[in-house]
Amino acid sequence: MKYHGGYFIYTVRKSDIRLWQLLIMASLLLVGVWFRDFSLYPAQIIFTFAAGLITQAIFLRLFKLKQHGFLSAIITCFGLCLLLRSSTLWVHPAVASLVMASKFLIRPQGAHLFNPANLGVVLGLTFFPETWVTSGQWGQDLTTALWLIAAGFFIGRNAKRLDITAYFLVFYASLFLLIRVVWYGYTLPVFFHQFQNGALLLFAFFMISDPMTIPRHHKARILHAAVVAVLAYIWQYQLYWNQGIIWGLFWATFLVPLWNHLFPAPRYQWQALSGEHT
């Protein structure tokens, strides 16, 4: 990012779409902390960013990757702040450091495997004390939902990976409608209640849509979306465990190298004018 004075807006529009993503996530965080009662301390936010960005910088130096930047790292830090809750001050920065390191150390087929924010939540829930995820934190506010959709759509369209968001939502909604509404006899308001949840929309538009960690080929992305939806549904509604979507994506990630092998396609490049190429 360079300072372009009066041309700032124009430059942003043409530059890396992650900048938009970053602005949206930052505003979600602000809205969440101020109006939605997210139990998040300012110190946790500061430490997350400090640890995440320092780790990123260390690895960039270590691997001498000068052309890489910090945009993705910042987005990951926002993701962790939006999702992870802890009553300690050290879990957020520890998780942020680990997932940044994972991007440089776990690279089958020459690209990082795990969606960093997704891996962060899984690590936090599994290995760290006093750490949890509050899936109900967004409330079922319709306006929040609509706003997330609109914002997510914008990013998705620019990143040309909105397809996986749409596939995932269609698969997941179909499973819910067929099994729970048609077969079990739940009412439609139950469906709307579940699908107006900000956590689900945030996941669909900002997590699963990360172009670097999903299959490269269009067809493989359809398969991937279906696998995530089925795993998430089973986790959430058959086993009655929590955070089905997060765990669904995590387990489905292990199949991504296979999909990329079976359906070869070129790697995604951020359409950046900011000089960053990941």
Binding site: R85, S87, P129, E130, T131, W132, Y186, P189, V190, H193
Partner: peptide, 17 residues
């Protein structure tokens, strides 16, 4: 009935504050 269309589900967090 309108504001709570489905049964209440819970989760035990690891929050001890």
């Amino acid at each position: 009935p309108d504001s709570f269309p489905e049964d209440l589900s819970f989760q035990e967090t690891r929050d001890t504050e």
